[in-house]
Design a protein around this nucleic acid. Sequence first.
DNA 1: CGTCCACGTCTAC
DNA 2: TAGACCTGGACGG
Length: 405
Amino acid sequence: MPEGPELHLASLYVNEVCDGVVFTGAVRKSEVSKCPDVPFTCEAYRITATSRGKEVKLTLTPIKSADSKRTVKSGQADQAMDVVFRFGMSGYFRFSAEDELPKHAHLRFYTKEKSCRVLSFVDTRRFGSWQPSGTWQRDRGPCVMFEYSSFRENVVSHLSDRVFDRPVCEVLLNQKYFNGIGNYLRAEILYRLNIPPFVSARSVLESLEVQDSLEKEKAVKHSITGKKKSDKVKEEDETSDLLRMCHMVPLEVVNLGGKGYDPAKADYSGFMSWLQCYAVEGMNCLQDHNGRTMWFKGDPGPMVPKGSRSTRAKILVKKERNDDNADKKKVARSRSESTLKKRPIKQEVTEIKAKDASLSEAGSKKRKTGKTAEETKPRRSRNSGEKAAAGSQRRSGRIAKQNSK
DNA sequence: CGTCCACGTCTAC
DNA sequence: TAGACCTGGACGG
């Protein structure tokens, strides 16, 4: 799931598995890949990684052997090289035995071990890419997670840019300003703040410009008067501010992974239960102007694309209601609270029904009753598309039906 | 079997 | 604002 958090977890994974490991020889590319060769060959080198938004940079560092000063054989690197990766829709890193290379391992780094292991860039769909001797892509903004203040400054100082005329849900995918946000994060972020996806980005953000400058003034005053800087306004900003959420929400995902993240033993159940809106049963969705599925709850806002289908997107997550027929007031309340505190409250209302490492369930029915209102009336195109999805990767496990409760 | 869908960019009309 | 770029899983017939 390559958005900012997954790219960052990938960099942690590389640093962990490559710690103390010596690599050797050439970097090898799959036959089928159209990405450039990586012209780096070295008798002994190490690999480290960093991430920024939706990119990961590997640094290949030659190990200088004490004695051989000029034994730089021809074609052997003596300089470090950076390789910058973008993951497309399906990229990830995996460290495995040489004889257990994953399918679609398109770029490979070989260890100098008796029974050799391989760090692979795996990318089923091949939308990912890498750049040898690479740098962070120009035109991508600061990382929403790890360069927060410059990220914020970059947005606030460019609010007159016409891109902010567009619906906020589409602007959130603009990596020039929101490097690291992707399709599931935009849904989760807007959902938590109850911001309709199809309102202009500037209308949501322009109040921040004022707030930010007020903050600065206040900071100055405080530094003069020596007052404390916590007042009510400030505290409200902590959670209601869209830019702050673009920082915090991805970090929550990073912290789900925590220690020992390993794509080999991918266990998405924690992630699935973390999702509150994206691909969650009962949420609405529409195609944005780029044909991407926007998940949301309630009012879509005025800038919905003409003729936008209420798509039949895949539902990956079913949450369970505990209360029999109490309904949605509760949900709404728990949601706004969830923004504030780490709540164990959430489980009281929603509970994922995911099996082990796999995703989730099957079909819902179309039940034509109630179904809230038709707040979204783009075009009555067939049933309001509910679908099933989810598959269990390895396990066969055909799961539940919609027994419910 | 075929169709639709997927966590993202890219470039071309 | 379309497509192109790809593979594969879920679902429908």
